[in-house]
C-alpha cells in the first residue's frame, strides 16, 4: 500500500458530498426551526385569534399596543415583563458570574475534596426547572416553608412575603434561578482556569504584583474567552425564562413577576390573541438578536483566523 502519497489538492470540480450529508439535518432544521421563526414574524403582524381561518394583516399595531402600554402610572403587563426580563438579565450577567468565578478561583486553590464541593454547587443545574420551582415554592412558603418559619422562630415578627409582595416577588424568583445557574458558571471557569499558566502568576508574584493585581492583569484577561461565553449563556438563559415563573407564581401577583415568555403564553393561549402573543415573542427575539449578532461576530473573527 502506498505510504507516500502525492499532496492532495482540494478537488476543483463541484462536490456534492457535503450537501448529501447536510440534506437530512438541514431540512429538518429549516422546516422545524427556521421556517416557524419566520412564521412568527408574520403572525405578529396579524390579529389572528388562533382559530378563525382568516387572519387580518394589521401591520405593526400589535407592537404599538405593546409599547404604547408602557410608561403609564399603573405598570402594564408588558412593561412588567420587559422590565423583569431586563432585571433578570442584568442580575444574571453580574452576580452569578461573579460568584461562579469566585468559587472557581477558591476551589482552584488545591482544596482537598474540591470535587465534592463542586458537585454540591453544581447539583441544582442538573434538576429540571419545574423541580427547582417546586422546591423553591416550598422554601418560600410562608406557613410550611423553609425560610419564614425560621425567621419567625428567630424572633422576626413580620418576615417578608417573598412570593406575594409585588416588589419582592421577581427577585425571589431570580434568586432561585441564580441558585441553579451559579454551579454552571463555576464549572466553566474551573475549566478555564486549567488553561491559565501557573508560571505566569508566579512570575508576576516575583515582580511584586499582589494577588488582586495578578488577578486583574493576568488571570482575568486570560479568562476573557470563558467570560464571553458565560455572559452569552447568561443572557440567553435569562431571556428564555419561563418555567420557574410559571411553576412558582404564574406571573402573579398582578403580573408583578411575569416575563415576556409567560406573557406571550397568556396572551396566546388564555386570551386567544395569537398575533399579540407572537409580537411579544418577536420583541423577545429582537432583544436576543443583539447578543446573537455580537456573539456570531466574535465567532466569525475566530473562524477567519483559521
Amino acid at each position: 500500500m502506498a505510504v507516500t502519497s502525492p499532496p492532495i489538492k482540494t478537488k476543483p470540480k463541484f462536490d456534492f458530498t457535503p450537501y448529501l450529508f447536510l440534506i437530512g439535518p438541514l431540512t429538518l432544521y429549516l422546516v422545524w426551526i427556521i421556517a416557524p421563526m419566520f412564521y412568527s414574524f408574520y403572525l405578529s403582524t396579524t390579529d389572528w385569534d388562533g382559530i378563525s381561518p382568516d387572519a387580518k394583516y394589521i401591520g405593526l399595531s400589535n407592537f404599538e399596543t405593546l409599547f404604547g402600554s408602557m410608561g403609564k402610572r399603573r405598570t402594564s403587563p408588558f412593561e412588567y415583563a420587559l422590565v423583569n426580563n431586563l432585571k433578570w438579565l442584568l442580575t444574571f450577567i453580574t452576580i452569578p458570574v461573579a460568584m461562579g468565578l469566585g468559587l472557581a478561583i477558591v476551589l482552584n486553590q488545591n482544596v482537598k475534596g474540591d470535587r465534592f464541593f463542586k458537585m454540591g454547587i453544581f447539583l441544582p443545574q442538573v434538576l429540571s426547572l419545574p423541580v427547582i420551582g417546586l422546591i423553591w415554592a416550598w422554601v418560600y412558603n410562608p406557613r410550611d416553608g423553609f425560610i419564614n418559619p425560621l425567621l419567625t422562630s428567630l424572633g422576626l415578627a413580620d418576615p417578608p412575603s417573598w412570593l406575594s409582595d409585588k416588589e419582592l416577588v421577581i427577585w425571589a424568583v431570580i434568586f432561585a434561578a441564580a441558585w441553579r445557574q451559579i454551579g454552571y458558571i463555576m464549572i466553566l471557569y474551573v475549566a478555564g482556569l486549567k488553561n491559565v499558566d501557573i508560571r505566569l502568576l508566579e512570575a508576576a508574584k516575583l515582580d511584586g504584583a499582589n494577588a488582586w493585581q495578578s488577578f486583574r492583569h493576568i488571570t482575568f484577561p486570560l479568562l476573557a474567552p470563558v467570560t464571553t461565553i458565560v455572559v452569552v449563556i447568561s443572557v440567553i438563559d435569562s431571556l428564555r425564562s419561563f418555567d420557574l415563573v410559571w411553576v412558582m407564581t404564574k406571573g402573579g401577583p398582578a403580573n408583578a413577576s411575569t416575563v415576556l415568555a409567560v406573557l406571550m403564553y397568556i396572551q396566546a393561549f388564555n386570551n386567544y390573541k395569537m398575533g399579540l402573543g407572537a409580537a411579544t415573542a418577536v420583541v423577545l427575539f429582537m432583544i436576543s438578536l443583539v447578543f446573537i449578532v455580537g456573539y456570531l461576530w466574535r465567532i466569525m473573527k475566530d473562524e477567519m483566523e483559521y
Binding site: 416557524p36 412568527s40 415568555a261 415573542a281 446573537i292 456573539y295
Partner: peptide, 11 residues
C-alpha cells in the same frame, strides 16, 4: 441562542 418561545405557536 434563539428564545424558543418564538417557535411555540408555529410548532
Amino acid at each position: 441562542m434563539l428564545p424558543f418561545q418564538i417557535l411555540i405557536l408555529p410548532i
